[in-house]
Design a binder for these strands. Structure first.
Length: 918
RNA sequence: GCGGGCAUGGCGUAAUUGGUAGCCGCGCCAGACUUAGGAUCUGGUGCCGUAAGGCGUGGGGGUUCGAGUCCCUUUGCCCGCACCA
């Protein structure tokens, strides 16, 4: 019988769906949670790169299920996002409709590949039943503060209590800016004033923030949504601007987010990316008094040792001290400079790194030597990092050096033997000079000594700074979660939890209002029951994706995000599969969100994703034809150098193994109707290049097309065969025949030459048993190491061997069917039933191998002379090293190599190799 | 600039982790199937050489009986961060 994959795959996909084979409930088995990063359903549909990770996780899920685990393997959609909204602006079609259409298309495509998702747990971030819990989490964050002493989020009600008892005394709280007040002061404040103060401590807080404003998209963006001054989505310019925005106090968790990376089984490179993004730096804060005033400026430095070399100070243009310090004579110049800086976009600042700055007229006093040093302003100092002001040490910092040279400020070298005549000496080694009590110390000792000194003299303290900023959480957009927030005289309050979900209102147009309000400004009656206006911003894309893995555990619960019982059973994600592009976005936000919920005892694990696998990107592989200039003739690749040609992208779907289907080409586009070809060996060979997979390059390969012509099982196995899962690689349909042939060969093992299903119960022989067991062993260890490409090879070797042995014994083939089922679920399900089973192969038991069958009796020892293999000698494995040595040396071939001389040394690695040194 | 990763046949890749380099697949070559082949099957295929043999894991050096694997150095490519004090 022919391997009719179309029929088989349709039949079993229907069977799985109708019998809910993949529906999962809590039971007494051990749990295993496998999760894919849920997709944003774009209008273009799936291409062949998208399922790569899904296939890997599906194989792993099925494997774990065979091993007796209760495997949670859900799927859903990250449904809020800009493309649907942009489409709505252009066409007026409601984003909900676009999204629904795209989701249906995705689902149809996914279903064809034979995944074991439990679709009963599907989530969509744009469904009110789902975003209810996104809004709920926001309310919890609004109602919480972060206690630095306890390293934990706590209810804000607790803080209100403490404020009324003791004010801010003895508290160490994460905040926007440090405040100090007594209990009496707190108690005498009005409700509005108190609320304003609390915003300074809330984990979700509203504040005037320097934001990345993208006018082309009409919204602000988070730091991870911007790269080099351009928006990641669309590549539009982004400018810095102060706006009153919602923020999440992610920075409070910087320490834990960094420290807990240690316990995660993630790739080193991804952890490193997160470490970079969090950006811990150890140093000290030092206070500088301003001469003739009571102002003190605090700076952050990692080089406390260089304090004797400070020749000037620099403030960020946005620094609050600028106004206080600037002397009247400099006022105009300073104001002009600040204005000029403001006008520059982030991109311009990056592009133009010329040195600029202006003197404030003020002087600071160096606390270690009393030197008077000028205070400058420059945009090379960032307001958002450290304290927004620095002590400049031109001798040992290249940026300060450039500034000093440009404005003619002094440079004092502090390290013995360093040459600062042309550039600064930034290295952290050497012996200190010109540094008072630090002279003679090494840099490392000097840093430590200075820190001690400033702490003793109370002029500063040790400090650890993080680069990680709070996440800007407002978007001036329609298609996102509405905030459960209303305003009483500009002061924000959150809705009662019973009012959730606060549903996204209908509006007639998706653009900002005429007076520049976000689209929700168009909504009618967008206010609370008692008439208070509701928030007009919506939440950003990462809001809905931050806790979705928790929702899958208990997807239909409408009284809790996840029940304690479901959370206790499923705990967290054992295996998460997705791309590295989320390293500094989703994967940080999710960890933050999870830790926050953990702090409030709402969940029991403090990390969301135990193990993470990053699947590589699949690039496109474009094909080209070469048109001879000025004609409608096309010349094959090998002959194109004989002509003057133009390279033209050709649809990869009409090319196979780089050979063009010339008939299909003629029908592809009207222009090519009368094309003529200059062939080589009767074929038209196309050129190729690796590029991004995109419509305009005609290199998009749709998985549906592959499924149609080869079947889902072939697609699954071929995607795995392509190479290591973590590696990026171009999609290349050349080679898929090999995998397809394998499946046909596997199929043919079960049928005789008349096409009848033919399996015997005969006992298997040694050779067959060995073949099976070594394959089980290899495939099992490969799956556990996510080395799916090598397991596909192992299957090919096994089937080739059994085919040669003409093995059709149940004892061998039945375990092989189970073994292959995670990779090729359809064909194995068919055969499993032909073998007489009535339940699905996914509930079979993973076969066990017996090491005893794998042991050889003899071994062919490669014998090397001086490290170079010269011949092979087969010997019984039972021999010890001495016996092997004797047997080798008495061999006639060995005699020839020894040439009558005794060997200097003989190395025998039992069971492996022999090396004779002559 | 700082940090991380990679480099193996014509191509995608593999190598029990320091022990026969090139498994498996593509491509290519030859043969079979008494018409054809972008079908199927069988065999061959790292490079040079008729052969014996020699050379081979980006380059150079080192450790070792033995290095794709470890160390030093160098080149090329990819990724992350970047005016972060």
């Amino acid at each position: 019988m022919e391997y009719n994959f179309r029929e088989i795959e349709q039949k079993w996909q229907k069977y799985w769906a109708e019998n809910k084979i993949y529906k999962i409930v809590i039971n007494s088995k051990p749990k295993f949670y496998v999760l894919d990063m849920f997709p944003y359903p774009s209008g273009a549909g799936l291409h062949v790169g998208h399922p790569l990770g899904y296939i890997a996780s599906d194989i792993f899920s099925r494997y774990k299920r065979l091993c007796g685990f209760n495997v949670l393997h859900p799927m859903g959609y990250d449904a809020y996002g800009l493309p649907a909204e942009q489409y709505a602006i252009q066409t007026g079609q409601h984003p909900a409709i676009t999204t629904e259409t795209n989701i249906n298309r995705y689902r149809r495509q996914l279903d064809k590949i034979g995944f074991c998702f439990d679709w009963d747990r599907e989530v969509r971030t744009c469904n009110p039943e789902y975003y209810k819990w996104t809004q709920w989490a926001f309310i919890q964050m609004f109602n919480s503060y972060y206690c630095n002493q306890a390293q934990q989020a706590r209810p804000i009600s607790e803080l209100v209590e403490v404020f009324s008892q003791q004010g801010t005394k003895d508290l160490d709280l994460a905040c926007n800016k440090p405040l100090h007040f007594t209990a009496a002061e707190w108690n005498s404040k009005t409700e509005k004033e108190q609320q304003e103060i609390l915003l300074n401590y809330r984990i979700a807080y509203l504040a005037d923030t320097m934001v990345n404003w993208c006018s082309a998209l009409g919204t602000v963006l988070a730091n991870d949504e911007v790269s080099e001054g351009l928006s990641i989505r669309g590549g539009y310019p982004v400018e810095q601007k102060v706006m009153r925005q919602w923020n999440l106090r992610v920075s409070a968790y910087a320490h834990r987010l960094l420290a807990d990376l240690e316990k995660l089984d993630w790739s080193e490179s991804l952890k490193e990316t997160q470490r970079n993004w969090i950006g811990r730096s150890e140093g000290a804060e030092v206070k500088f008094k301003i001469a003739d005033s009571d102002i003190e400026i605090t700076v952050f430095t990692t080089r406390a040792d260089t304090i004797f070399g400070v020749t000037f100070m620099v403030l960020a243009p946005e620094s609050e001290y600028v106004e206080k310090l600037t002397k009247t004579e400099q006022k105009q110049e300073v104001t002009e400079y600040i204005e000029r800086t403001k006008r520059r976009t982030e991109r311009e600042r990056i592009a133009d790194r010329s040195v600029t700055g202006v003197f404030t007229g003020a002087y600071a006093i160096n606390p270690v030597n009393g030197e008077k040093i000028p205070v400058w302003i420059s945009d090379y100092v960032l307001s958002g990092y450290g304290t927004g002001s620095i002590m400049a040490v031109p001798a040992h910092d290249s940026r300060d050096y450039a500034f000093a040279k440009h404005f003619g400020l002094p440079v004092i070298p502090l390290i013995e033997g360093c040459d600062v005549s042309n550039e600064s000496f930034d290295a952290k080694d050497g012996i200190m000079i010109n540094s008072g009590f630090l002279n003679g110390l090494t840099v490392k000792q000097a840093i430590e000594t200075t820190k001690k000194y400033i702490e003793e003299k109370n002029i500063g303290q040790r400090k650890i700074n993080y680069r990680l900023r709070d996440a800007i959480f407002s978007r001036q957009r329609y298609w996102g979660e509405p905030f459960p927030v209303y305003y009483k005289e500009e002061t924000p309050y959150v809705l009662d939890e019973e009012k959730l979900p606060l549903e996204l209102p209908e509006i007639d147009k998706f653009l900002p209002t005429e007076n520049g309000e976000p689209p929700l400004g168009r909504a009618k009656n967008w206010q609370t029951d008692d008439g208070y206006p509701l928030e007009l911003n919506t939440m950003p894309g990462f809001a809905g994706s931050s806790a979705y893995y928790l929702r899958y555990m208990d997807a239909h619960n409408n009284t809790a995000l996840v029940s304690a019982q479901a959370n206790k059973y499923w705990r967290n994600v054992d295996l998460y599969v997705g791309g590295t592009e989320h390293a500094t976005g989703h994967l940080i936000y999710s960890r933050f969100w999870n830790k926050f919920l953990f702090d409030l005892d709402l969940i029991i694990e403090d990390e969301p994703f135990k193990k993470l696998i990053n699947q590589g990107m699949i690039q496109g592989r474009s094909n080209f034809v070469y048109r001879v200039k000025g004609t409608n003739k096309y010349v094959s690749l090998g002959l194109k150098d004989n002509y003057e040609t133009t390279e033209i992208h050709v649809d990869v779907n009409i090319v196979k193994n780089d050979i063009l289907d010339t008939e299909k080409f003629k029908n592809w586009m009207p222009d090519f109707k009368n094309a003529e070809f200059i062939l080589e060996d009767g074929k038209y060979i196309c050129g190729y290049a690796v590029e991004k997979m995109s419509k305009s390059m005609y290199n998009v390969v749709n998985p549906d097309v592959i499924v149609e012509s080869y079947g889902a099982d072939t697609l699954r196995m071929y995607e795995m065969f392509l190479g290591p899962i973590e590696q990026s690689k171009p999609w290349d349909t050349n080679g898929i025949d090999g995998v397809h042939r394998f499946l046909r060969k596997f199929w043919s093992l079960f049928f005789d030459k008349d096409g009848n299903f033919n399996i015997t119960n005969e006992q298997a022989n040694q050779q067959e048993i060995k073949c099976l067991h070594k394959t089980i062993k290899k495939v099992q260890s490969d799956i556990e190491n996510f080395s799916f490409n090598t397991s596909v090879s192992a299957f090919m070797i096994c089937v080739n061997e059994l085919f040669t042995l003409k093995c059709n014994k149940r004892e061998i083939l039945e375990p092989l069917v189970t073994l292959l089922s995670p990779f090729a679920p359809h064909i194995t399900e068919e055969i499993w039933h032909l073998l007489g089973h009535t339940t699905s192969v996914c509930d079979a038991e993973f076969p066990k191998y017996n090491e005893a069958f794998l042991i050889e009796n003899t071994f062919e020892y490669p014998v090397s002379f001086n490290g170079k293999v010269r011949f092979k000698k087969e010997l019984p494995l039972a021999m010890d090293a001495k016996q092997i040595e004797a047997a080798i040396l008495s061999d006639t071939t060995a005699q020839k190599w020894l040439d009558g001389k005794p060997p200097k040394k003989v190395i025998v690695v039992v069971g492996k190799i022999v090396n004779v040194v002559i």
